[in-house]
């Protein structure tokens, strides 16, 4: 028998604590598969955030560090600068990266920090119970925007990939989604490109992954993937936002 698909050993055997149908599990697996395929498990250090992925260190089968809320890019910088041979990635949600950690991510990109960031945008604070995120869509109901996000009150959602693509130090920025098998394949390719960008020493790389939150969106997993496609992708267009890796 030939194996077509099995769980990568770069994911531990721990059962993920995520809710049924949560995209975090998909993205964890993609990152782990990329680490396995690139043969970099023994030199990779994972920085996990505060948010739903706070227990990421239980799942990524690599040396792992738990960072304070939003500070993963700064902490990851500490590892990368003391040991440039490490492959360092941060895994952050939209509250962690786009809100409290906005300064840290902007300046990691600005320094051209040779780290890779996997940014999960599911338009909500998951861990704390469904509060509004900077990425929450206009009109979207959350526990702190119970009448729907009002742009006159708290602005329109922030497009991180586009914003970071304007920064000189960014080398590879792409937005992907995990709503369909085809998009999941593309997401994995983007994550691989981002890690390869780091390995080539080109600069800062980030993949923004549009993901779902069935529990806090109040939908079934299947409905949430459809909601993502209909509502998030039009506002957050998929694709490569910056890529200097192919320049000579």
């Amino acid at each position: 028998m030939q194996t077509v698909f099995k769980k990568t050993p770069v994911l531990t055997d721990a059962i993920l604590h995520y809710c049924p149908g949560c995209g975090h599990g998909i993205v964890h697996r993609l990152v782990a598969e990329v680490i396995e395929e690139l043969g970099i498990q023994d030199r990779t250090v994972a920085y996990v955030p505060v948010g739903c992925a706070v227990f990421g260190y239980k799942y990524f089968n690599v040396d792992s560090v738990e960072a304070a809320h939003g500070r993963a890019p700064a902490a990851a910088t500490g590892t990368k600068r003391t040991d440039p041979n490490r492959v360092v990635f941060t895994y952050q949600g939209d509250g962690d990266l786009a809100s409290i950690g906005a300064a840290e991510i902007v300046h990691a990109a600005h320094r051209g920090e040779k780290i890779t960031t996997i940014f999960i945008n599911n338009a909500i604070y998951g861990m704390t119970g469904g509060q509004m995120a900077p990425t929450t869509l206009v009109g979207q109901k959350t526990t702190t925007s119970p009448y729907g996000r009002d742009e006159n009150h708290c602005g329109k959602p922030i497009r991180i990939a586009e914003m970071l693509a304007t920064i000189e130090g960014s080398a590879y920025i792409e937005r992907v989604a995990v709503n369909t098998p085809a998009n999941i394949v593309k997401a994995k390719k983007a994550i691989k490109n981002a890690f390869e960008c780091q390995l080539a020493g080109k600069g800062f790389s980030l993949v923004e992954v549009l993901s779902n939150c069935p529990t806090n969106w109040g939908m079934s997993p299947v409905e949430s993937m459809e909601w993502l496609e209909k509502n998030m992708i039009p506002y957050y267009p998929l694709g490569v936002k910056k890529d200097i890796t192919k320049e000579v």
């Binding site: 194996t3 077509v4 698909f5 099995k6 769980k7 990568t8 994911l11 059962i15 993920l16 995520y18 049924p20 149908g21 949560c22 995209g23 975090h24 599990g25 998909i26 697996r29 369909t180 098998p181 999941i184 394949v185």
Partner: peptide, 10 residues
């Protein structure tokens, strides 16, 4: 590939 919990082996 879609399974968030990596439960399927093929």
């Amino acid at each position: 590939r879609t399974c968030p919990d990596a439960v399927i082996t093929i």
